[in-house]
Amino acid sequence: MTIIIGIIFLGILVFLHELGHFLAAKLSGVKVEAFSIGMGPVLLHKEWKGTDWRISLLPFGGYCAMKGEQDFEEYYNGNSQIDHNSFYGVKAIFRAFIGFAGPLANFLFSVLAFFIIALTGYTYYSAGNTIRLATEQYPELHSAAKEAGITSGDRIIRINEKETEDFSAIYTEIAAHGDEDILIEVERNGEILNFIVHTDLDKNTGEGKIGVMSDETSVEPRQAVRYSFFPALYQGFSQTFKLIYLSIKGITTLFKGVNITESIAGPARITNMLGETARSGFSAGFREGCVSVLQFMALISISLFIMNLLPIPILDGFLVLTSVVEAVFGIKVSPKAKNIVQYAGIALIAILFTLAISGDFHYFSELLNAKK
Protein backbone atom coordinates (compact mmCIF):
# COMPACT_ATOMS: atom_id res chain seq x y z
CA MET A 1 0.00 0.00 0.00
CA THR A 2 2.90 2.33 0.80
CA ILE A 3 4.30 1.90 -2.72
CA ILE A 4 0.89 2.50 -4.32
CA ILE A 5 0.42 5.73 -2.36
CA GLY A 6 3.93 6.83 -3.34
CA ILE A 7 3.27 6.10 -7.03
CA ILE A 8 0.06 8.16 -6.92
CA PHE A 9 1.73 11.24 -5.42
CA LEU A 10 4.80 10.91 -7.66
CA GLY A 11 2.44 10.57 -10.62
CA ILE A 12 0.85 13.90 -9.68
CA LEU A 13 4.24 15.65 -9.91
CA VAL A 14 5.01 13.99 -13.26
CA PHE A 15 1.56 14.96 -14.54
CA LEU A 16 2.07 18.61 -13.53
CA HIS A 17 5.50 18.69 -15.18
CA GLU A 18 4.20 17.30 -18.45
CA LEU A 19 1.08 19.49 -18.21
CA GLY A 20 3.39 22.51 -18.15
CA HIS A 21 4.90 21.38 -21.47
CA PHE A 22 1.43 20.61 -22.84
CA LEU A 23 -0.07 24.00 -22.02
CA ALA A 24 2.98 25.87 -23.31
CA ALA A 25 2.88 23.87 -26.55
CA LYS A 26 -0.81 24.68 -27.01
CA LEU A 27 -0.21 28.37 -26.34
CA SER A 28 2.67 28.33 -28.84
CA GLY A 29 0.56 26.70 -31.55
CA VAL A 30 2.30 23.30 -31.46
CA LYS A 31 0.19 20.17 -31.84
CA VAL A 32 0.59 17.65 -28.98
CA GLU A 33 0.22 14.16 -30.43
CA ALA A 34 0.44 12.16 -27.18
CA PHE A 35 0.44 12.80 -23.44
CA SER A 36 1.48 9.93 -21.18
CA ILE A 37 1.76 9.32 -17.46
CA GLY A 38 4.34 6.57 -17.16
CA MET A 39 6.78 5.21 -19.70
CA GLY A 40 7.01 2.09 -21.85
CA PRO A 41 4.10 0.03 -23.23
CA VAL A 42 0.73 1.82 -23.23
CA LEU A 43 -1.84 0.27 -20.89
CA LEU A 44 -4.78 2.61 -21.49
CA HIS A 45 -5.33 5.41 -23.95
CA LYS A 46 -8.05 7.66 -25.32
CA GLU A 47 -7.84 10.26 -28.06
CA TRP A 48 -9.39 13.59 -27.16
CA LYS A 49 -9.14 16.89 -29.00
CA GLY A 50 -6.31 15.68 -31.21
CA THR A 51 -4.14 14.28 -28.40
CA ASP A 52 -3.74 10.61 -27.45
CA TRP A 53 -3.96 10.53 -23.64
CA ARG A 54 -2.12 7.53 -22.21
CA ILE A 55 -1.31 5.62 -19.04
CA SER A 56 1.83 3.55 -19.59
CA LEU A 57 3.26 0.52 -17.82
CA LEU A 58 6.28 1.96 -15.99
CA PRO A 59 4.99 4.41 -13.34
CA PHE A 60 8.17 6.50 -13.22
CA GLY A 61 8.22 9.45 -15.62
CA GLY A 62 6.02 10.50 -18.49
CA TYR A 63 6.14 12.40 -21.75
CA CYS A 64 4.42 15.02 -23.88
CA ALA A 65 5.02 14.06 -27.52
CA MET A 66 4.77 17.03 -29.85
CA LYS A 67 4.44 17.02 -33.61
CA GLY A 68 7.76 17.18 -35.45
CA GLU A 69 10.07 16.83 -32.43
CA GLN A 70 12.35 14.60 -34.53
CA ASP A 71 12.61 17.03 -37.44
CA PHE A 72 15.76 18.75 -36.17
CA GLU A 73 17.92 17.95 -39.19
CA GLU A 74 15.24 19.17 -41.61
CA TYR A 75 14.94 22.38 -39.61
CA TYR A 76 18.72 22.88 -39.47
CA ASN A 77 18.99 22.38 -43.24
CA GLY A 78 16.33 25.03 -43.86
CA ASN A 79 13.51 22.74 -45.00
CA SER A 80 10.60 25.04 -45.72
CA GLN A 81 8.08 22.17 -45.70
CA ILE A 82 8.00 21.90 -41.90
CA ASP A 83 4.42 22.37 -40.72
CA HIS A 84 3.68 25.59 -38.87
CA ASN A 85 2.04 23.65 -36.00
CA SER A 86 5.03 21.37 -35.45
CA PHE A 87 7.74 21.79 -32.82
CA TYR A 88 10.31 23.21 -35.26
CA GLY A 89 7.66 25.15 -37.13
CA VAL A 90 7.46 27.79 -34.37
CA LYS A 91 10.03 30.41 -33.38
CA ALA A 92 12.97 29.44 -31.18
CA ILE A 93 11.70 31.58 -28.29
CA PHE A 94 8.49 29.52 -28.23
CA ARG A 95 10.53 26.30 -28.08
CA ALA A 96 12.43 27.76 -25.11
CA PHE A 97 9.08 28.58 -23.50
CA ILE A 98 7.83 25.02 -24.06
CA GLY A 99 11.03 23.55 -22.58
CA PHE A 100 10.96 25.82 -19.54
CA ALA A 101 7.24 25.32 -18.82
CA GLY A 102 7.70 21.81 -17.40
CA PRO A 103 10.21 22.81 -14.70
CA LEU A 104 8.20 26.00 -14.12
CA ALA A 105 5.16 23.85 -13.27
CA ASN A 106 7.26 22.05 -10.63
CA PHE A 107 8.42 25.39 -9.23
CA LEU A 108 4.86 26.70 -9.01
CA PHE A 109 3.69 23.50 -7.30
CA SER A 110 6.31 24.04 -4.60
CA VAL A 111 5.13 27.64 -4.13
CA LEU A 112 1.53 26.41 -3.85
CA ALA A 113 2.48 23.67 -1.38
CA PHE A 114 4.32 26.03 0.97
CA PHE A 115 1.55 28.62 0.54
CA ILE A 116 -1.04 26.09 1.73
CA ILE A 117 1.17 25.01 4.63
CA ALA A 118 1.69 28.63 5.73
CA LEU A 119 -2.00 29.39 5.36
CA THR A 120 -3.23 26.44 7.43
CA GLY A 121 -0.43 25.98 9.96
CA TYR A 122 0.30 22.68 11.65
CA THR A 123 1.37 21.05 14.90
CA TYR A 124 4.77 19.42 15.22
CA TYR A 125 6.74 17.85 18.05
CA SER A 126 10.22 19.00 18.96
CA ALA A 127 12.54 19.29 21.91
CA GLY A 128 13.59 22.71 23.17
CA ASN A 129 16.82 24.47 22.25
CA THR A 130 18.73 23.40 25.37
CA ILE A 131 21.37 20.91 24.24
CA ARG A 132 23.66 18.30 25.72
CA LEU A 133 26.92 17.07 24.25
CA ALA A 134 26.68 13.76 22.39
CA THR A 135 30.00 12.63 23.88
CA GLU A 136 28.34 12.28 27.28
CA GLN A 137 26.31 9.36 25.96
CA TYR A 138 28.58 8.28 23.11
CA PRO A 139 32.21 8.95 24.15
CA GLU A 140 33.53 7.62 20.84
CA LEU A 141 31.85 10.36 18.82
CA HIS A 142 33.53 13.58 17.75
CA SER A 143 31.90 16.78 19.01
CA ALA A 144 32.82 19.97 17.17
CA ALA A 145 30.61 21.87 19.61
CA LYS A 146 32.63 20.63 22.60
CA GLU A 147 35.91 21.58 20.90
CA ALA A 148 34.57 25.09 20.33
CA GLY A 149 33.64 25.52 24.02
CA ILE A 150 29.91 24.74 24.04
CA THR A 151 28.77 22.73 27.05
CA SER A 152 25.73 20.68 28.06
CA GLY A 153 22.91 22.87 29.36
CA ASP A 154 23.62 25.70 26.90
CA ARG A 155 20.64 27.07 24.99
CA ILE A 156 21.39 27.54 21.31
CA ILE A 157 19.35 30.63 20.47
CA ARG A 158 20.82 31.57 17.06
CA ILE A 159 22.87 29.96 14.30
CA ASN A 160 24.33 32.28 11.68
CA GLU A 161 22.05 35.00 13.11
CA LYS A 162 18.91 32.88 12.52
CA GLU A 163 16.76 32.27 15.58
CA THR A 164 16.49 28.65 16.72
CA GLU A 165 13.50 28.35 19.00
CA ASP A 166 13.60 24.55 19.21
CA PHE A 167 15.85 21.62 18.40
CA SER A 168 14.16 21.07 15.04
CA ALA A 169 15.40 24.50 13.92
CA ILE A 170 18.88 23.74 15.29
CA TYR A 171 19.06 20.46 13.38
CA THR A 172 17.80 22.02 10.12
CA GLU A 173 20.33 24.85 10.20
CA ILE A 174 23.33 22.69 11.11
CA ALA A 175 22.43 19.98 8.57
CA ALA A 176 22.57 22.55 5.76
CA HIS A 177 26.17 23.54 6.57
CA GLY A 178 28.35 20.45 6.45
CA ASP A 179 32.13 21.02 6.68
CA GLU A 180 31.69 24.77 7.22
CA ASP A 181 32.31 27.37 9.90
CA ILE A 182 29.06 28.50 11.53
CA LEU A 183 28.37 31.15 14.17
CA ILE A 184 26.47 29.75 17.15
CA GLU A 185 25.01 32.04 19.79
CA VAL A 186 24.17 30.41 23.12
CA GLU A 187 22.70 31.46 26.42
CA ARG A 188 24.53 30.14 29.48
CA ASN A 189 23.38 31.11 32.95
CA GLY A 190 21.83 34.32 31.61
CA GLU A 191 24.96 35.26 29.64
CA ILE A 192 25.08 35.41 25.83
CA LEU A 193 28.15 33.75 24.30
CA ASN A 194 29.23 33.35 20.67
CA PHE A 195 31.21 30.44 19.22
CA ILE A 196 32.61 29.67 15.79
CA VAL A 197 32.09 25.95 15.19
CA HIS A 198 33.43 24.00 12.21
CA THR A 199 30.83 21.36 11.43
CA ASP A 200 31.57 17.75 10.53
CA LEU A 201 30.18 16.30 7.30
CA ASP A 202 28.21 13.06 7.46
CA LYS A 203 29.55 11.18 4.42
CA ASN A 204 26.38 9.07 4.15
CA THR A 205 23.78 11.82 4.25
CA GLY A 206 25.73 14.94 3.25
CA GLU A 207 24.46 16.70 6.39
CA GLY A 208 26.41 18.81 8.85
CA LYS A 209 26.88 17.69 12.48
CA ILE A 210 28.40 19.29 15.58
CA GLY A 211 27.96 16.50 18.13
CA VAL A 212 25.03 17.76 20.20
CA MET A 213 21.80 16.07 21.27
CA SER A 214 18.40 17.33 22.37
CA ASP A 215 16.96 17.20 25.87
CA GLU A 216 14.36 14.46 25.34
CA THR A 217 12.41 15.56 28.41
CA SER A 218 11.62 18.87 26.70
CA VAL A 219 9.77 17.36 23.73
CA GLU A 220 6.32 18.91 23.40
CA PRO A 221 3.77 19.84 20.71
CA ARG A 222 4.51 23.16 19.04
CA GLN A 223 2.38 25.20 16.67
CA ALA A 224 3.80 26.54 13.43
CA VAL A 225 2.82 30.11 12.61
CA ARG A 226 -0.38 30.55 10.57
CA TYR A 227 -0.23 33.40 8.04
CA SER A 228 -2.92 35.41 6.29
CA PHE A 229 -3.19 35.24 2.48
CA PHE A 230 -0.43 37.57 1.24
CA PRO A 231 2.14 36.74 3.96
CA ALA A 232 1.41 33.05 3.24
CA LEU A 233 2.01 33.67 -0.47
CA TYR A 234 5.31 35.34 0.42
CA GLN A 235 6.20 32.27 2.50
CA GLY A 236 5.38 30.09 -0.51
CA PHE A 237 7.98 31.86 -2.66
CA SER A 238 10.45 32.34 0.21
CA GLN A 239 10.46 28.67 1.24
CA THR A 240 10.68 27.57 -2.39
CA PHE A 241 13.75 29.71 -3.08
CA LYS A 242 15.26 28.49 0.18
CA LEU A 243 14.68 24.90 -0.93
CA ILE A 244 16.32 25.60 -4.30
CA TYR A 245 19.35 27.06 -2.50
CA LEU A 246 19.60 24.09 -0.13
CA SER A 247 19.16 21.60 -2.99
CA ILE A 248 21.94 23.17 -5.04
CA LYS A 249 24.08 23.36 -1.92
CA GLY A 250 23.37 19.67 -1.34
CA ILE A 251 24.59 18.85 -4.85
CA THR A 252 27.91 20.56 -4.09
CA THR A 253 28.46 18.22 -1.11
CA LEU A 254 28.76 15.34 -3.60
CA PHE A 255 32.20 16.78 -4.42
CA LYS A 256 33.26 16.60 -0.77
CA GLY A 257 33.60 12.83 -0.64
CA VAL A 258 29.97 12.02 0.21
CA ASN A 259 28.85 8.42 -0.35
CA ILE A 260 26.94 8.88 -3.62
CA THR A 261 25.01 5.60 -3.44
CA GLU A 262 23.65 6.70 -0.06
CA SER A 263 22.98 10.31 -1.06
CA ILE A 264 21.30 9.80 -4.46
CA ALA A 265 17.85 8.25 -4.24
CA GLY A 266 16.38 6.44 -7.21
CA PRO A 267 12.72 6.20 -8.22
CA ALA A 268 11.98 3.16 -6.07
CA ARG A 269 13.34 4.72 -2.88
CA ILE A 270 11.66 8.07 -3.57
CA THR A 271 8.33 6.33 -4.15
CA ASN A 272 8.69 4.30 -0.95
CA MET A 273 9.74 7.35 1.09
CA LEU A 274 6.85 9.40 -0.28
CA GLY A 275 4.36 6.64 0.53
CA GLU A 276 5.84 6.18 4.01
CA THR A 277 5.69 9.93 4.63
CA ALA A 278 2.00 9.96 3.69
CA ARG A 279 1.20 6.90 5.81
CA SER A 280 2.98 8.09 8.95
CA GLY A 281 1.83 11.69 8.50
CA PHE A 282 -1.86 10.90 8.20
CA SER A 283 -1.64 8.53 11.16
CA ALA A 284 -0.89 11.63 13.27
CA GLY A 285 -3.88 13.55 11.89
CA PHE A 286 -5.32 14.83 8.62
CA ARG A 287 -3.70 18.28 8.74
CA GLU A 288 -0.33 16.85 9.80
CA GLY A 289 -0.55 14.27 7.00
CA CYS A 290 -1.30 16.94 4.39
CA VAL A 291 1.63 19.04 5.60
CA SER A 292 4.04 16.07 5.57
CA VAL A 293 3.02 15.07 2.06
CA LEU A 294 3.12 18.63 0.71
CA GLN A 295 6.58 19.25 2.20
CA PHE A 296 8.00 16.05 0.73
CA MET A 297 6.32 16.61 -2.65
CA ALA A 298 7.70 20.17 -2.70
CA LEU A 299 11.19 18.76 -2.13
CA ILE A 300 10.82 16.28 -4.98
CA SER A 301 9.24 18.93 -7.20
CA ILE A 302 12.16 21.30 -6.70
CA SER A 303 14.56 18.43 -7.39
CA LEU A 304 12.74 17.91 -10.69
CA PHE A 305 12.91 21.65 -11.37
CA ILE A 306 16.67 21.78 -10.86
CA MET A 307 17.48 18.48 -12.57
CA ASN A 308 15.45 19.24 -15.69
CA LEU A 309 17.05 22.66 -16.10
CA LEU A 310 20.56 21.21 -16.27
CA PRO A 311 21.98 21.95 -19.76
CA ILE A 312 22.23 18.25 -20.60
CA PRO A 313 20.75 16.80 -23.80
CA ILE A 314 17.48 14.84 -23.29
CA LEU A 315 16.72 17.24 -20.43
CA ASP A 316 14.69 20.44 -20.76
CA GLY A 317 17.64 22.65 -19.87
CA PHE A 318 19.51 21.83 -23.08
CA LEU A 319 16.48 22.72 -25.19
CA VAL A 320 16.00 25.98 -23.29
CA LEU A 321 19.67 26.92 -23.63
CA THR A 322 19.99 26.16 -27.36
CA SER A 323 16.65 27.80 -28.15
CA VAL A 324 17.54 30.99 -26.27
CA VAL A 325 20.95 31.13 -28.00
CA GLU A 326 19.21 30.74 -31.36
CA ALA A 327 16.55 33.35 -30.53
CA VAL A 328 19.08 35.93 -29.29
CA PHE A 329 22.12 35.30 -31.52
CA GLY A 330 20.62 33.39 -34.45
CA ILE A 331 23.03 30.48 -33.89
CA LYS A 332 21.71 26.97 -34.53
CA VAL A 333 23.29 23.85 -33.06
CA SER A 334 24.37 21.58 -35.92
CA PRO A 335 23.00 18.01 -36.06
CA LYS A 336 26.52 16.58 -35.71
CA ALA A 337 27.30 18.66 -32.62
CA LYS A 338 23.89 17.92 -31.15
CA ASN A 339 24.34 14.17 -31.63
CA ILE A 340 27.79 14.18 -30.02
CA VAL A 341 26.59 16.14 -27.01
CA GLN A 342 23.43 14.05 -26.82
CA TYR A 343 25.37 10.78 -26.61
CA ALA A 344 27.52 12.27 -23.86
CA GLY A 345 24.38 13.42 -22.06
CA ILE A 346 22.77 10.00 -22.33
CA ALA A 347 25.94 8.41 -20.92
CA LEU A 348 25.94 10.81 -17.97
CA ILE A 349 22.25 10.18 -17.25
CA ALA A 350 22.86 6.42 -17.49
CA ILE A 351 25.69 6.66 -14.94
CA LEU A 352 23.54 8.69 -12.53
CA PHE A 353 20.60 6.31 -13.01
CA THR A 354 22.86 3.31 -12.32
CA LEU A 355 24.14 4.95 -9.13
CA ALA A 356 20.57 5.73 -8.07
CA ILE A 357 19.38 2.16 -8.71
CA SER A 358 22.44 0.84 -6.87
CA GLY A 359 21.61 3.11 -3.94
CA ASP A 360 18.00 1.91 -3.98
CA PHE A 361 19.12 -1.72 -3.94
CA HIS A 362 21.45 -1.06 -1.00
CA TYR A 363 18.71 0.86 0.84
CA PHE A 364 16.09 -1.87 0.49
CA SER A 365 18.62 -4.61 1.32
CA GLU A 366 19.43 -2.89 4.62
CA LEU A 367 15.72 -2.36 5.25
CA LEU A 368 14.99 -6.06 4.78
CA ASN A 369 17.94 -7.10 6.94
CA ALA A 370 16.77 -4.77 9.71
CA LYS A 371 13.34 -6.47 9.72
CA LYS A 372 14.80 -9.98 10.07
Results as ranks from 00 to 15, higher is better:
residue 224 A to V: 13
residue 233 L to A: 09
residue 244 I to T: 01
residue 211 G to Y: 00
residue 225 V to N: 11
residue 192 I to A: 11
residue 246 L to R: 13
residue 199 T to N: 01
residue 196 I to A: 05
residue 224 A to N: 07
residue 235 Q to P: 08
residue 213 M to P: 00
residue 185 E to Q: 15
residue 232 A to F: 12
residue 235 Q to Y: 14
residue 207 E to Y: 15
residue 248 I to Q: 02
residue 246 L to Q: 13
residue 202 D to P: 06
residue 236 G to L: 10
residue 221 P to F: 05
residue 235 Q to F: 09
residue 224 A to W: 00
residue 193 L to R: 14
residue 204 N to L: 11
residue 181 D to S: 10
residue 196 I to N: 11
residue 209 K to D: 06
residue 189 N to Y: 06
residue 248 I to K: 07
residue 201 L to W: 05
residue 239 Q to K: 15
residue 186 V to W: 01
residue 247 S to R: 05
residue 185 E to R: 15
residue 179 D to W: 13
residue 243 L to Q: 09
residue 246 L to N: 13
residue 202 D to R: 09
residue 207 E to M: 12
residue 245 Y to E: 10
residue 213 M to S: 02
residue 199 T to P: 14
residue 241 F to E: 03
residue 181 D to P: 03
residue 195 F to G: 02
residue 246 L to S: 09
residue 206 G to N: 02
residue 218 S to R: 02
residue 211 G to N: 01
residue 225 V to F: 09
residue 235 Q to C: 03
residue 220 E to V: 15
residue 242 K to C: 05
residue 247 S to V: 14
residue 190 G to P: 09
residue 245 Y to L: 08
residue 235 Q to V: 06
residue 224 A to L: 10
residue 238 S to C: 02
residue 236 G to E: 01
residue 233 L to C: 10
residue 210 I to S: 03
residue 179 D to Y: 12
residue 222 R to D: 00
residue 189 N to D: 13
residue 225 V to D: 01
residue 237 F to S: 02
residue 198 H to G: 04
residue 217 T to V: 03
residue 216 E to S: 14
residue 233 L to P: 14
residue 204 N to W: 05
residue 223 Q to Y: 13
residue 218 S to A: 07
residue 226 R to L: 08
residue 239 Q to D: 02
residue 180 E to V: 13
residue 220 E to D: 08
residue 202 D to S: 05
residue 193 L to A: 10
residue 178 G to C: 11
residue 206 G to C: 07
residue 223 Q to F: 14
residue 190 G to C: 01
residue 208 G to P: 12
residue 196 I to W: 12
residue 209 K to A: 13
residue 227 Y to N: 11
residue 214 S to M: 15
residue 210 I to A: 03
residue 240 T to N: 05
residue 226 R to S: 15
residue 241 F to T: 08
residue 227 Y to M: 11
residue 234 Y to A: 05
residue 183 L to F: 05
residue 246 L to A: 09
residue 214 S to R: 14
residue 199 T to Q: 03
residue 198 H to N: 06
residue 241 F to A: 01
residue 209 K to V: 11
residue 201 L to Y: 00
residue 191 E to V: 15
residue 244 I to L: 04
residue 196 I to L: 13
residue 220 E to I: 13
residue 216 E to H: 09
residue 238 S to T: 12
residue 214 S to N: 10
residue 218 S to K: 02
residue 206 G to R: 07
residue 243 L to V: 00
residue 187 E to R: 06
residue 187 E to W: 07
residue 222 R to Y: 04
residue 225 V to S: 14
residue 230 F to I: 13
residue 207 E to Q: 15
residue 210 I to F: 04
residue 247 S to D: 05
residue 180 E to S: 12
residue 179 D to K: 15
residue 185 E to S: 14
residue 225 V to G: 00
residue 184 I to R: 07
residue 186 V to C: 04
residue 192 I to D: 01
residue 211 G to L: 10
residue 188 R to P: 08
residue 209 K to S: 01
residue 244 I to G: 04
residue 232 A to E: 00
residue 228 S to H: 11
residue 248 I to E: 02
residue 203 K to S: 08
residue 198 H to P: 03
residue 236 G to S: 07
residue 205 T to V: 06
residue 219 V to T: 12
residue 236 G to A: 12
residue 181 D to Y: 09
residue 190 G to R: 13
residue 188 R to C: 07
residue 208 G to I: 04
residue 201 L to F: 10
residue 187 E to A: 05
residue 220 E to N: 09
residue 231 P to G: 00
residue 212 V to N: 11
residue 179 D to Q: 11
residue 192 I to T: 15
residue 179 D to T: 11
residue 192 I to F: 06
residue 184 I to P: 06
residue 225 V to L: 12
residue 210 I to Y: 01
residue 233 L to G: 07
